[in-house]
Nucleic acid binder design. Sequence first.
DNA 1: GTTGTAGTTAATATTGGTGTTAATAAAAAT
DNA 2: ATTTTTATTAACACCAATATTAACTACAAC
Lengths: 106, 106
Amino acid sequence: MDLRRDAFQAIADPTRRAILLLVASQAMTAGAIAANFDTARPTVSKHLQILAECELLKQEQNGREIYYHINAKKMKEVADFIEPFRQMWEERFNKLETIMKTHKTK
Amino acid sequence: MDLRRDAFQAIADPTRRAILLLVASQAMTAGAIAANFDTARPTVSKHLQILAECELLKQEQNGREIYYHINAKKMKEVADFIEPFRQMWEERFNKLETIMKTHKTK
DNA sequence: GTTGTAGTTAATATTGGTGTTAATAAAAAT
DNA sequence: ATTTTTATTAACACCAATATTAACTACAAC
């Protein structure tokens, strides 16, 4: 069977989503990231590994510390999947807006 | 039994993403959907169940047939998560554009 | 009522992912 | 050089998810 290791699989886990939002504001070390969660450090480390493997995070060694940077562009894969659906729900919204406008002008 | 049941988990599976894209164009019965895949019908049925549970699909009974409709608006949950990251990668693009403009005007 | 079709549910096997503790690696501080 | 700090890898247990076949329910047509 396939070993699914893509952005969709990565953001399926709530802890990983929290890590991404946390790192989005600024690059952080694994320890600093783990400090924000109840789970043990190796567990966070594994999540970071998965996120790095999916290229949602980039590692940057700085002496003995490793900084994790966000790679926002990789989210585009997910965004591209959602785009057609976004068009669907916005189309419906626009229709509703048009109806409301015609009501007002009456 | 099944714990994590949200839109993120739902779209983590490639088969489910394919189902969503398939049903997006028009509502279909479970059999018609299953005909598009190699997997057995009960497997597709379970995927449909999960998608319905997450409210990405809506069921509509019509005699003995059950039609599955897309619920595009539910994708907004995922879109909302991605939005801040989208701003990040577009901001970088805008910066680049600004630099290129200043180069031109020189 | 019996037959055929649409679809789900049950029971089961297998694989994948999460999380823990313990061991290991590497760099800074003393 | 030894200790401390930072972080990953290893070994293991456990739960969740995917998939299959077989059995079951519901509806329609005859």
